[in-house]
Write a protein that binds this DNA or RNA. Sequence first.
DNA 1: AAAAATATGTCAGCATTGTTGACATATTTT
DNA 2: AAAATATGTCAACAATGCTGACATATTTTT
Lengths: 162, 162
Amino acid sequence: MMTSREQEVVELIELLFFAYRDFVSDPDEILRDYGFGRAHHRIVHFVGRNPGIRVAELLDILRITKQSLGRVLKDLIESGHVEQREGDSDRRHRLLFLTEKGESLRRKLVGPQIERFSAALKASGPGSTGAYRDVLLHLVNPEDRKEVEARISRNLAMPVLD
Amino acid sequence: MMTSREQEVVELIELLFFAYRDFVSDPDEILRDYGFGRAHHRIVHFVGRNPGIRVAELLDILRITKQSLGRVLKDLIESGHVEQREGDSDRRHRLLFLTEKGESLRRKLVGPQIERFSAALKASGPGSTGAYRDVLLHLVNPEDRKEVEARISRNLAMPVLD
DNA sequence: AAAAATATGTCAGCATTGTTGACATATTTT
DNA sequence: AAAATATGTCAACAATGCTGACATATTTTT
């Protein structure tokens, strides 16, 4: 059997599924025009948000194998959306950057997602942003929480250039 | 360029990714012991939560083709986790139910998810449940919102049997 | 300097789960 | 009787995971 408290939680579980389902649907459509998939999107997104990220870091974010990453990353390098540079301090490192072309794609993909989110936050009560943040952050594995928190807010400190 | 408001929204976007990433990781491990994947999980979950659901409804929830569903559903029927009955009013319908075995698997899979969620809600401030609900529901496509709302809360009205 | 460890890349094969298109069957609606 | 609907199935293919093995360059340790 199931307590009504558990029933309530299961509703939230399903809501996460439905929200995620629709949330990724906008980029999916755009990506088709480029012959890219969701895997490409993730790379474009996280490289764009973390310029100079190392391959190993990207693997840790995505939680996939280097072989899986390699195949898709190769597409993006060959198409001129991503470029690699040697690390300064450690020349084994391959630092990843978006080209202008890549940055343009990133913005195109994130646009509808920002719109959808802004509308959702507007439609929800004030303070909903904080609560959303609290809950979602605590869904992340405890041992990863600090890193995730640092990663998502990293760019706030960056000067906003034009 | 990007306004700081947009920066904030992008953080929430990434948080959705990280939360989802870790949230599905618990069931994934369990499923491996059964030789099942995420696709099986989704079916077990939604059939369990919507006993007697029709194939077409399930397709609409999952947003996949009947061929994709068919392959995975076949596994679950052959393994004795799901059973089909003819519709009463319309005998073309195939109504889906979990067997006891299937219900047992469903509970096993949802257990860690309930735990993770309960802990997250506890750690977040009071009222965070409602805000989470508000935001996530508004991430769902407007035209699907009503249906999703009805679907997730459908079972609250059901008598809780033992 | 030599050995070990690290970061990355690559080849090959395979599994899961998504897709399209075509067609078959049973049943219900028109 | 004809058309529409719900489901199932076959075949081919695409995207994106995986494992295992091995190669190269570079840095760290001994």
